[in-house]
């Protein structure tokens, strides 16, 4: 582990129950990060999505990819990130290839496509056991509070 939850919280404005990154396990300069999300069986969304057949909602998988991307942005633009801006998703092109279940360990990878001070584009993917379960191209804005 390279970053623990404390370090992650120092960069991301998200908090439980909406913080989806548990660890950062790889950092390749400012080009790529790999993070981990542990899907605990007790997560509240599993109760309703779906009763008797719990799977992680796709929108939350996208949220995990977006949070990993915000971490990557903070590495590329530390002077912007230190002001603790808000991150807003603007456009998502996504593909879901397999479900994520309680107990899964999501490997969330984000690669830089283009970063500016007020906007960013990343290519992201999520794996479970080396199998890609989701891919997305994200465009998000960064706004000072």
């Amino acid at each position: 582990m390279i970053w623990d939850k404390i370090k992650i919280k120092s960069v991301l404005p998200h908090r439980d129950p909406f913080l989806f990154i548990d660890e950062v396990i790889e950092i390749d300069g400012t080009d790529r990060v790999v993070a981990v999300t542990y899907l605990k069986e007790a997560e509240s969304y599993f109760k309703g999505h779906f009763p008797g057949n719990p799977v992680m909602p796709g929108v939350l998988i996208i949220e995990a990819m977006a949070q990993a991307s915000a971490i990557l942005f903070s590495l590329d633009r530390p002077e912007v990130a230190k002001e603790h801006p808000d991150y807003y998703l603007g456009k998502v092109k996504s593909e879901f290839l397999a479900p994520a279940y309680p107990g899964d360990k999501l490997i969330v990878e984000s690669k830089k496509v283009k970063f500016l001070d007020n906007a960013a584009i990343t290519d992201t993917l999520v794996k479970v056991d080396d199998r890609i379960i989701a891919k997305a191209n994200l465009i998000f804005s960064i706004k000072k509070r």
Binding site: K91, V113, K114, A120, I121, I139
Partner: peptide, 10 residues
């Protein structure tokens, strides 16, 4: 806006 601008640039 900034999102469209970065999309065009990229």
């Amino acid at each position: 806006d900034s999102l469209k601008a970065i999309e065009i640039v990229a």
